Simulated assay, not measured.
Amino acid sequence: MKDVLDELAAVHRRMGTGSLPAGEAYTVELRRRYDAEIDDVWDAITRPERLRRWLRPVTGDLRLGGTFELEGGEHGEILRCEPPRLLGVSWLFGPEADAWPGTSEVDVRLAPDPTGGTEFTLIHAAAVGEPMFPTYGPGAGGVGWDLALLTLARLLADGEIADHEEFGKSSDGREFSRRSAAAWGRAHLAAGGEPEQVAAAVAATTAFYVPDPT
């Protein structure tokens, strides 16, 4: 469990604001370092054979301007691709999402560090009107990304094949998700969230990711 919590502590989380084609947006930002060369990290986030090992299987026309779909429903368009430093996609979920283009985007930015590792930044921007935010706050997507980046860390470290959704159901995974939800609550407070609203959002996020087993 200590290694898992060390990975949780390795991530710097921030909630902010931004803009999308659909208008004003809120952002969740996850920033951390991976002890792997930038080309290796880029390969892990773009090659389908490796992407499926830490996120989910992906299909589609995987080039700039093409579209993708993850097993489970997330889909979108590849908006930006500058190997090995920037990947940007629209990020939609469910068929009804196509009625609101420009409402959610994910950027992954990579930069080499002097020690041979890689600085990794993921920014997920979602339109302010997106219905999950008032209930769950930044943890709505933040906890899921925390779980995915933990699995990516394992893949980069030793090639381990893992399923972050299955891990989330384990006792260690449930504790990780609880602590991740609390960490996103702290990021929400730091961004100016009202304490009562933040506490309610953390409770809702925790209940979503760590449901009562009974």
Rank of each mutant, 00 (worst) to 15 (best):
G65I: 13
L79W: 02
V28F: 01
A127F: 08
D163R: 05
V89M: 14
S180A: 15
D3S: 09
D172V: 06
E7P: 00
A187G: 07
L156G: 03
G23M: 12
W184L: 06
W100P: 00
K169D: 08
A153P: 01
E194Q: 12
A25D: 09
A99Y: 04
T27Q: 06
L5N: 10
P134K: 05
R179G: 02
G129D: 12
V210Q: 00
A200I: 10
L122V: 14
T214S: 14
P114Y: 08
E165K: 06
A111F: 03
E29V: 15
A204I: 05
S171T: 15
L122Q: 12
G60W: 00
D61C: 03
A22Q: 12
G159M: 12
G142V: 07
G65H: 13
R13N: 06
G60R: 00
P195F: 07
L189R: 14
G116F: 09
V202P: 02
T59R: 13
L86A: 09
R14S: 13
S171K: 08
I45Q: 04
L87H: 07
G65Q: 12
E160H: 12
D212M: 06
A201K: 00
E82K: 08
H75G: 04
R56T: 11
L92Q: 15
R52V: 06
L122P: 00
D163C: 11
F167C: 02
A181V: 07
P83Y: 11
D61P: 03
P131D: 10
G73H: 08
Y209A: 03
R50D: 11
T135W: 02
D163V: 06
F167E: 02
E49F: 02
E71L: 08
A182H: 03
P57E: 08
F176N: 00
A190W: 05
G23K: 10
D113L: 09
L152E: 09
V28Y: 00
Y136T: 03
Q197L: 14
H75F: 11
Y26P: 00
T17M: 12
P57S: 10
W100L: 12
A127N: 12
P112A: 15
A111G: 12
